[in-house]
Measured scan of single mutants.
Amino acid sequence: MSIQHFRVALIPFFAAFCLPVFAHPETLVKVKDAEDQLGARVGYIELDLNSGKILESFRPEERFPMMSTFKVLLCGAVLSRVDAGQEQLGRRIHYSQNDLVEYSPVTEKHLTDGMTVRELCSAAITMSDNTAANLLLTTIGGPKELTAFLHNMGDHVTRLDRWEPELNEAIPNDERDTTMPAAMATTLRKLLTGELLTLASRQQLIDWMEADKVAGPLLRSALPAGWFIADKSGAGERGSRGIIAALGPDGKPSRIVVIYTTGSQATMDERNRQIAEIGASLIKHW
């Protein structure tokens, strides 16, 4: 067993022997301040990774656009098919120029040779490549099948209805392509620590998230040296922004954090800054 596999296998073990965790309302004060600064709703939840206990939450059962955070769930569904012998990570998928959609920095470079399922998941999570996500959605049967996968996990809230990039439209009061912070946090925890996926697939999923290259201005910008984070960000229309993450000190994750916002007129930089400040408060009061 590799060191990384050992780390993920012992996530519940280490967490069980940690000192009790206590909620700190100071972080919620910052979440509410972010709402004021952005002029928009902000949803927040913080779960203990081992027990699933909610440590703090704000608007945990209000719907927010998922945006690209759905790509972690998508690759979880792909990995479940791999575990069941219905898919192979090494299978190569070929596609054409007509398949390319807006923001496809990886797939646009491989029109000639195609990409493997493993490479597509890596591109979808680490670079948020939209064509990679659409190609992977095709392998599982489309958005409705991802929703069905989530329902089978016990998540009857999260739903995907459309493809990239239309799913980022974020129309107010439109339930399409949305989740709730509580539902997303619980589902992410199941994917990373539950028995739904094999140990190898859980490790692969967290490795992809740990290698995320496009979430630097968010929670990662607030992390002290030595902290662990595996995350996936999302951005959408109407001032929408979000991030889902597993993080913790001492090089291992111990909490799940989900943050979503929508309806702001603020710039992307300002949305990023507010999420980073929430992260800084979380870490300060850990």
Rank of each mutant, 00 (worst) to 15 (best):
H24R: 06
H24Y: 04
H24G: 05
P25D: 10
L28H: 13
V29T: 13
V29P: 09
V31N: 04
V31F: 04
V31S: 04
K32W: 15
K32C: 14
D33R: 02
Q37I: 12
Q37T: 04
Q37D: 07
L38F: 06
G39I: 04
G39Y: 04
R41W: 02
R41L: 12
R41M: 13
V42S: 03
V42M: 14
G43P: 00
G43W: 01
Y44P: 01
I45W: 11
I45D: 03
E46L: 15
E46W: 14
L47N: 12
L47D: 02
D48G: 03
D48P: 04
N50H: 06
N50Y: 06
N50K: 09
S51A: 09
K53S: 11
I54S: 11
I54Y: 12
L55P: 04
E56K: 09
E56N: 04
F58M: 14
R59F: 15
R59C: 07
R59A: 12
R59E: 13
P60F: 14
P60L: 13
E61Y: 07
E61M: 09
E61W: 03
E62Y: 02
R63L: 13
R63A: 12
F64Y: 10
F64G: 00
M67E: 13
M67K: 03
M67Q: 11
T69P: 13
T69E: 05
F70I: 14
F70T: 08
F70G: 13
V72R: 00
V72N: 01
L73Y: 05
G76K: 00
G76W: 13
A77T: 13
L79K: 01
V82P: 01
A84P: 07
A84M: 08
Q86T: 14
E87N: 07
E87M: 10
Q88Y: 08
Q88N: 15
L89C: 08
R91C: 14
R91K: 13
R92N: 13
R92K: 15
I93T: 14
I93R: 15
I93E: 15
H94I: 03
H94W: 07
H94P: 04
Y95A: 07
S96E: 12
N98F: 10
N98Y: 13
D99G: 02
D99C: 04
D99I: 02
L100A: 12
V101S: 04
E102G: 04
Y103T: 05
Y103S: 03
Y103W: 04
S104W: 01
V106Q: 15
V106I: 15
V106K: 15
V106A: 15
T107M: 03
E108Y: 07
H110W: 13
L111Y: 08
D113W: 03
G114M: 03
G114N: 12
G114R: 08
M115H: 02
T116R: 11
V117E: 09
V117S: 09
R118Y: 05
R118P: 12
R118C: 14
E119K: 14
L120C: 06
C121L: 03
C121R: 00
A123Q: 02
A123H: 06
A124T: 14
A124Y: 00
T126D: 06
T126M: 09
T126A: 09
M127T: 13
S128M: 00
D129H: 00
D129Q: 00
N130C: 15
N130I: 01
T131C: 06
A132P: 00
A132C: 15
A133L: 00
T138G: 08
T139H: 03
I140P: 01
I140Q: 08
I140F: 12
I140S: 07
G141I: 12
G141K: 14
G141Y: 14
G141P: 10
G142N: 10
K144D: 02
E145W: 14
E145L: 12
E145R: 13
T147H: 08
T147Y: 05
T147W: 04
F149L: 10
F149T: 09
H151G: 11
H151E: 05
N152P: 09
M153L: 03
M153P: 01
M153D: 02
M153I: 03
G154A: 11
G154L: 11
G154F: 10
D155N: 10
V157N: 11
V157Q: 10
T158Q: 01
R159D: 12
R159A: 13
L160S: 10
D161G: 05
R162V: 08
R162T: 13
R162S: 12
W163Y: 10
W163R: 08
E164A: 00
E166L: 14
E166P: 13
L167F: 05
E169V: 03
E169C: 05
A170R: 02
I171W: 15
I171V: 15
P172M: 11
N173I: 04
N173F: 12
D174Q: 15
D174S: 13
D174K: 14
E175L: 07
R176A: 06
R176M: 03
R176S: 08
R176L: 11
D177E: 02
T178H: 12
T179S: 02
T179P: 00
M180S: 06
P181V: 04
P181W: 00
P181S: 03
P181C: 05
P181A: 10
A182S: 06
A183P: 07
M184A: 03
M184N: 02
A185T: 05
A185Q: 01
A185N: 01
T186L: 11
L188F: 03
K190A: 13
L191Q: 04
L192F: 12
T193P: 02
L197M: 15
L197C: 07
L197H: 08
L197I: 05
T198N: 12
L199V: 12
A200E: 06
S201I: 09
S201D: 12
R202I: 15
Q203I: 01
Q204Y: 02
L205W: 09
L205P: 01
L205R: 00
I206E: 08
I206W: 07
D207W: 12
W208K: 01
W208R: 01
W208V: 13
M209T: 09
M209S: 07
M209W: 14
E210I: 15
D212L: 11
K213E: 03
V214K: 15
V214E: 14
A215T: 11
G216E: 08
G216F: 11
P217L: 12
P217G: 09
L218V: 03
L218S: 03
L218W: 13
R220S: 08
R220N: 09
S221Q: 05
S221H: 05
A222F: 02
L223I: 13
P224K: 10
A225S: 11
A225F: 12
G226Q: 10
F228Q: 15
F228P: 01
F228K: 14
I229R: 04
I229Q: 09
A230P: 00
A230H: 01
D231A: 08
K232T: 01
K232R: 02
S233M: 14
G234A: 11
G234E: 01
G236P: 00
E237M: 04
E237F: 09
G239R: 11
R241K: 15
I243K: 00
I244D: 00
A245S: 09
A246G: 11
L247R: 00
L247Y: 14
L247V: 05
P249K: 10
P249S: 12
D250M: 02
D250T: 02
D250C: 04
G251Q: 12
K252F: 15
P253C: 03
I256N: 01
V257D: 01
V258E: 01
I259Y: 03
T261E: 03
T261M: 14
T262E: 10
T262M: 10
G263C: 13
S264W: 04
Q265K: 06
Q265I: 12
Q265G: 08
A266R: 04
A266C: 07
A266N: 02
T267H: 06
D269G: 07
E270F: 06
E270R: 02
R271P: 13
R271F: 13
R271N: 11
N272V: 12
Q274R: 08
Q274F: 03
Q274V: 08
A276Y: 09
E277G: 08
E277Y: 13
I278Q: 01
G279S: 05
G279C: 08
G279E: 02
A280Q: 06
S281W: 04
S281D: 12
L282N: 06
I283K: 05
H285V: 06
H285F: 03
W286Y: 07
W286K: 02
